[in-house]
Amino acid sequence: MNVQSPPEKLTARDFATDQEVRWCPGCGDYAILKAVQNTLAQLEADPKSTVFVSGIGCAARFPYYMETYGFHTIHGRSPAVATGVKLSNPELDVWVVGGDGDMLSIGGNHTMHAIRRNIDLQILLFNNQIYGLTKGQYSPTSKIGTRSPSTPMGSIDNPVSAAQFALGVGGTFIARSSDILQKHLPEVLKRAHGHRGTSFVEIFQNCIVYNDGAFKHFTEKSVQDEMQIHVEHGQPLLFGKDKSKGLVLNTSEMRLEAVTLGENGITEADIAVHDETNRSLATMLAQMDPPTMPVALGVLYCESAPTYDASVHAQIEHARKDGEGDFTKLLHGGQTWTVE
């Protein structure tokens, strides 16, 4: 076999396959693909030990475009497939990619259990609040009133908040970013990669064909300063142009409030400081919605906890502490007798 020494420095191109990318022109998935390829290059990830697993949907085509190992599976089941991959070989670096329908509707159960088990995966949820591949039906994250082929008079069911869901089921790493934040997104992905356990990253992604502008109320240039807050552990929760606004904790009502520095005697000392190990704070941040509050982006929550895959293999190692099992002895288990 030909042994080739890897190039000195990997680039994003090293993680791109020769396959023609088949998303709609202008789809937010292109930007996410580029961010992921950049991130892996910057992390100097080993392509042969990296696996991308996906379910069904536009986002689920992702593995075909990554020059790593990849498994495009069935609708909603990618977290369960990835669980099997990781349990079988914990050395692999396993990424799961899917959309809001895939991971929160048909596959919501698997997403929940992967997160609560804290198996060491990066789960990237591309949230575009719509079903793209099936041509535009409303999704479990669509806002009430979404008009779609299946809801011509507007959708009537409450949407789920991906980040709040992940926090609620005991996630140990919950972060948010957006397809258009090409500097922010790779930094979040790097944190996700560094975390041991299930790293859940919700990426707001624009579907240019069926739900164009779903997030423009906080992503457009004209509003992004006022309608986004980029949280960082240990840093005051400031946002707005010139960081003139911030969040304070109203302790009597147990909620966050947006304030302007200098108004009503507010100083920077009044501004809450982000503590990513505080699940209550993370939940309050995840709940914030425009127009009264900015959307919180960045690492909302991160805690260190045992991973499922490590614990499974620790039990196996414990069972083998006195040596590998003796199969002949196992066959002769229980009561035996000899017939002469």
């Binding site: 696996v51 697993v53 498994f71 599976t73 069935i74 089941r77 369960a80 497939v81 990835a82 669980t83 099997g84 991959v85 990781k86 349990l87 079988s88 070989n89 692999l92 159960n109 698997h110 259990h113």
Partner: peptide, 14 residues
């Protein structure tokens, strides 16, 4: 379903 798909994932991984 998760049982079957996890088994398949394990086979994929060898």
């Amino acid at each position: 379903i998760a049982a079957a798909t996890a088994a398949l994932g394990a086979s994929y991984a060898g």
